[in-house]
Design a binder for these strands. Structure first.
Lengths: 201, 201
DNA sequence: ACCTGGCCGTGACAAATGTCCCGGGTGCGG
DNA sequence: CCGCACCCGGGACATTTGTCACGGCCAGGT
């Protein structure tokens, strides 16, 4: 029996996937969590063979948790399952040592098969997505540029961002201007969207 | 057998829900679509008893489709199934004649039971959500204010919005300023987020 | 030792944005 | 008929935002 941990925030999705995987004769869902900061604890307790992680979770990113599992539970293979096939997400997933990357589009049949292939040591990635990730190149934003962009979601003003990062307003403006230039956009909002689409957030 | 139509854009979610509902002895999924503009056609063809619709779909909103089903297929009960329990969504769903409103959190067990209750003529709504929708009051934005806000997502400039709405830049600024005032926010971005959270978009 | 690149800041400037006036037109209900 | 709300626009103004040029600090590699 393949022991699977499931991390997904939407209750209905989580329950549905658990039932689906449980119907497979060789698969057993041994843990379910709805928050990113519960993943490592649950994995240490349930000792799964495969961890199926969403990226955008409350509390902690699934990507961060994946990196931790690499050291805390080295014999657990990690599959990333996410809504958005963003190049930067795929790149970060691979760097975090994930064994595969699935998008929530695509048929359900993929899922159980991906779990089996991950356990066999194969790497499972959508080829088109891999090409996009490669052609997009790495994240050109520096750490602070990323911070400033991330802090500017949901309409924060320059003063807000400066306060939350403990920086001068001038500095924040410089970082944002630089980020706008690197993303080839015209203002903060476009830069945020562009960076998100690439998975650079 | 209860005949169900399923409209949901995420392939994995759609497939999982279809399999789940299909396992119920008294439920049969007779149609699945991934786009909003295919709902009415599919319903006329498959004659479902219950239509389970996501709101945010490519091509057409599930709420718009629900309103059409009211006249095109009057004996088909509509259940809205959505990620976000936004008060405005619930309000619009009720106005479109929906028989129920489910959020994708919450356990899977709710789902089949909601389908049965809808068919029995009951209205199925989360009480807490209903209270929030009532206390929030109706949408205070005028049509044009909504248009201007909606056109200002993803970082369009005033000039872009004016062009896309065939208006003067002054007019657009006035609408946006008014929308910012009504939402109690400080700028476009915050106004957009506030309006979205309320389901006013 | 030198150069590079990230980090942090300043000052000045143009452009975009938000606010507050004002005007006119329309349609709807009292 | 009148008031009212929505629609559309203009002008003036303060504020915010984005850009550019310039400094300094520090760590890294050559």
């Amino acid at each position: 029996m393949i022991r699977v941990l499931l991390a997904e925030d939407q209750g209905m999705m989580r329950g549905a996937l658990a039932l689906l995987l449980g119907m497979e004769p060789d698969i057993e869902v041994v843990a379910q969590v709805g928050r990113g900061d519960e993943i490592v604890d649950a994995a240490l307790l349930a000792r799964p063979d495969v961890a199926l992680l969403d990226i955008e979770l409350p509390g902690r990113s699934g990507l961060d948790a994946a990196a931790d599992l690499r050291t805390e539970a080295p014999d657990c293979r990690v599959l990333i399952l996410t809504t958005f096939g963003r190049p930067g997400y795929l790149r970060r997933a691979m760097e975090a040592g994930a064994a595969g990357f699935l998008v929530k589009d695509g048929p359900v049949e993929e899922l159980a098969e991906a779990v089996r292939r991950a356990l066999r040591g194969e790497t499972v990635i959508d080829p088109a997505l891999a090409a996009a990730a490669l052609s997009a190149g790495p994240n050109p934003l520096t750490g602070r540029e990323r911070d400033a962009l991330a802090a500017s979601v949901d309409g924060a003003t320059i003063a807000d961002i400066a306060a939350s990062l403990h920086l001068s307003e001038s500095t924040v403006r410089n970082y944002l201007s630089s980020a706008i230039g690197k993303t080839g956009t015209r203002n903060r909002m476009e830069a945020v969207r562009a960076a998100r689409r690439q998975g650079w957030l």
